[in-house]
Design a protein around this nucleic acid. Structure first.
Length: 507
RNA sequence: GGCGCUAUCGUCUAGGGGUGAGGACGUGAGAUUCUCAAUCUCAAAACCCGGGUUCGAUUCCCGGUAGCGCUGCCA
């Protein structure tokens, strides 16, 4: 007699209070990887019981961020499913029903204490250095009194009776975790309005949605005994728990906005690739079985992911390592895709207009091919690309860093020879450029650095940049496009530079 | 304050009663290249502290310390 295992079902249950932060993104990813690797289901549930803080627009942003990361869900608020609705705000009746059941079975009771009273109790407890927990005042109320006060319309919340027994649960990453009930007060299940409190809603939902594994942040560890109490009161079986460590910032405090870019949408705006982000996030608290491999595709990740290799200690978020992975994935990415992704950045830098034609996109592939290895992410593009769109012969000649090129006899001869030839050459391509260079070499006797450096300065105004034979076709073809910042071709550049350089030399 | 979680190079991590404590990011040096970058090679860099168990602990146990979390009619 083989007992068939219940299907793997996991969920990601964010509150719609803003964009997806890296901590949550990592939780979502681990759930997703586990589901996909185990041929299970990944469920998205929106925890919007706090009506004041939840907004429809935030939910939209959240879904967008998760989807952009490449995580898809099998059941959720937008796609539906057998265990819906998937928004807690639409499940109030369900919570109310289970709350009533608990009151009837004697596991819960109505509490008439006002927030003001409770706050006062809390304060005195704190001032007496006592544990601030609910006194259980309303536990003793007689049936009659309760129904009388309820009928009089007095607002009542519903509280769970915490039993006098150790509340423990096995955790897949932390092992058996136990809590003494002394530290836990009778907490609120339902607010007077009937809206559920978090610790109640999660349990009801996770059970009804048949969640097999609850994988979430370890900030929920201390909440788990409360939830265990709810499971017991309802006579439900516990799911498997796996609590993931926190992601910290470099100063070892919880990662937050003040630490800079920490949300998925921000990373998207920076032009980071989603596969770089998921790869990086996977490395935070998890490692491949061989302990060595760090670059893992989405497929490798799902195939290799295992809860057994999750680490317990918190991890510090390291942007540098994310950038390293991003550079890696940019290198392996088709230029066509990267061009599309960099359009907004180049546009807002003023280098592109609203309409970008096919030829321009093809030309941009050349541009990216030349400068990509100089950037961590796409939004750094405007800087290395500047020398393509901006060239001013006077500035180039006057620039301090170019002084030695202007002043040295040898390099002036190179510039001179080169500029004359360019003027006569017509349109250049890499081959023609190389041929021209070797003519200059023969004429001036300069080679290597002494040959290329003056030419680089003459054509770009800079002492460093991408390889010249990549740059030349970019200049030439770029000049034929109509762009907000017209690109000057080699002949124009050389002419401008020569004019100012010669003038300076005449003195 | 109480309770809980955590502790290996600067950072992410592997490992585990006897190891030259492995890898990666970053850093430094060198090689290559027309420059920068990229690339390649090499190097420096760690078991939080104190007790216990043990022939032997970085590893197991206890305590301390530090960080983080919970202690809400937030989630």
């Amino acid at each position: 007699m083989t007992e068939s295992k219940p299907p793997i079902r996991v969920r990601f249950a964010p509150s719609p209070t803003g964009h997806l932060h890296v901590g949550n993104a990592r939780t979502a990813l681990f759930n997703w990887l586990f589901a996909r690797g185990q041929k299970g289901s990944f469920i998205l549930r929106i925890e919007d019981t706090d009506v004041e803080r939840s907004q429809a627009d935030f939910e939209r942003q959240l879904l967008e961020d998760i989807r952009w990361l490449g995580l898809d869900w099998d059941e959720g608020p937008d796609v539906g499913g057998l265990h819906g609705p998937y928004r807690q705000s639409e499940r109030t009746d369900i919570y109310r029903k289970h709350g009533m059941k608990l009151v009837e079975s004697g596991h819960a009771y109505y509490c008439f204490c006002t927030p003001l009273e409770l706050e006062a109790d809390r304060k005195t407890a704190l001032s007496q250095r006592r544990q601030p927990r609910y006194s259980g005042k309303c536990r003793q109320l007689s049936r009659e009194e309760v129904s009388r006060r309820r009928q009089a319309g007095e607002p009542a919340s519903t509280r769970l009776k915490i039993p006098e027994e150790v509340l423990s649960f096995p955790d897949l990453v932390h092992g058996l975790t136990r809590f003494s009930p002394d530290a836990i007060g009778d907490f609120i299940l339902l607010r007077p309005g009937g809206q559920p409190a978090y610790n109640f809603a999660v349990v009801v939902d996770d059970h009804l949605m048949q969640i097999s594994h609850v994988i979430r942040g370890d900030d929920h560890i201390s909440n788990t005994p409360r939830q265990v109490a709810v499971y017991r009161a309802l006579g439900w079986e516990l799911p498997q728990f796996a609590h993931l460590s926190t992601i910290l910032a470099g100063d070892r405090t919880r990662l937050s906005k003040r630490h800079g870019a920490t949300s998925v949408d921000h990373f998207r705006e920076m032009g980071l690739l989603p596969e770089a982000i998921t790869n990086y996030l996977a490395l935070l608290g998890w490692s491949a079985a061989d302990g060595v491999t760090e670059i893992l595709s989405r497929e490798q990740l799902t195939a290799q992911f295992s809860l057994a290799h999750i680490i317990k200690s918190p991890a510090v978020f390291d942007l540098q390592k994310l950038f390293w992975l991003n550079r890696h994935y940019m290198k392996g990415s088709p230029l066509e895709r990267l061009v599309k992704l960099s359009l907004p950045v180049l546009r807002s830098a003023g280098y592109l207009g609203e309409q970008v034609g096919k030829e321009t996109e093809q030309w941009l592939e050349l541009v990216l091919g030349a400068v990509l290895k100089n950037v961590d992410h796409l939004s750094q593009l405007p800087d290395p690309v500047r020398l393509i769109f901006h060239f001013d012969g006077r500035e180039a000649v006057q620039a301090e860093e170019n002084k030695d090129v202007i002043e040295s006899e040898d390099s002036r001869r190179v510039v001179d020879s080169f500029c004359q030839r360019v003027a006569a050459a017509g349109e250049l391509d890499s081959d023609k450029f190389r041929a021209l260079i070797s003519e200059v070499r023969n004429e001036t006797g300069q080679k290597g650095k002494n040959l290329f450096h003056p030419i680089r300065v003459a054509l770009t105004g800079r002492t460093s940049g991408p390889e010249m034979d990549k740059l030349v076709p970019i200049f030439e073809q770029g000049a034929k496009l109509s762009l907000p910042n017209p690109v000057k071709n080699c002949a124009e550049r050389a002419r401008e530079f020569a004019r100012f350089a010669l003038k300076g030399a005449a003195d």
